[in-house]
């Protein structure tokens, strides 16, 4: 799982999912969802929480529900 965003609330599983989808590269995923590779790098490192639309696009690429790609912890609320 990723490290989550700056509040440590949102984390993701993209790196593992890429690996299990024919070792998809960051560039390939970026092209499929319509962003730059830099954005995929930032999401994987937990430096950026994507918009809802981008999160859905990523989930569609892996053919998984959103909550299996991204997870949210409710600790600080």
């Amino acid at each position: 799982m990723g490290n989550g965003n700056s509040n440590g609330l949102i984390s993701n599983n993209i790196r593992n999912l890429r690996f299990h989808h024919d070792e998809m590269t960051q560039q390939q995923l970026a092209e499929k969802v319509g962003v730059t590779r830099q954005t995929i790098v930032a999401i994987e490192k937990g430096k950026y929480s994507p918009s809802l639309e981008l999160a859905f696009r990523i989930a569609f690429v892996f053919k998984l529900p959103l909550e299996e790609v991204f997870s949210f912890e409710w600790n600080n609320l």
């Binding site: 319509g34 962003v35 730059t36 830099q38 954005t39 930032a42 950026y48 994507p50 918009s51 981008l54």
Partner: peptide, 9 residues
């Protein structure tokens, strides 16, 4: 170079 600006940019 990237040809467009995405949401992060």
């Amino acid at each position: 170079e990237p040809s467009f600006s995405d949401e992060l940019d």
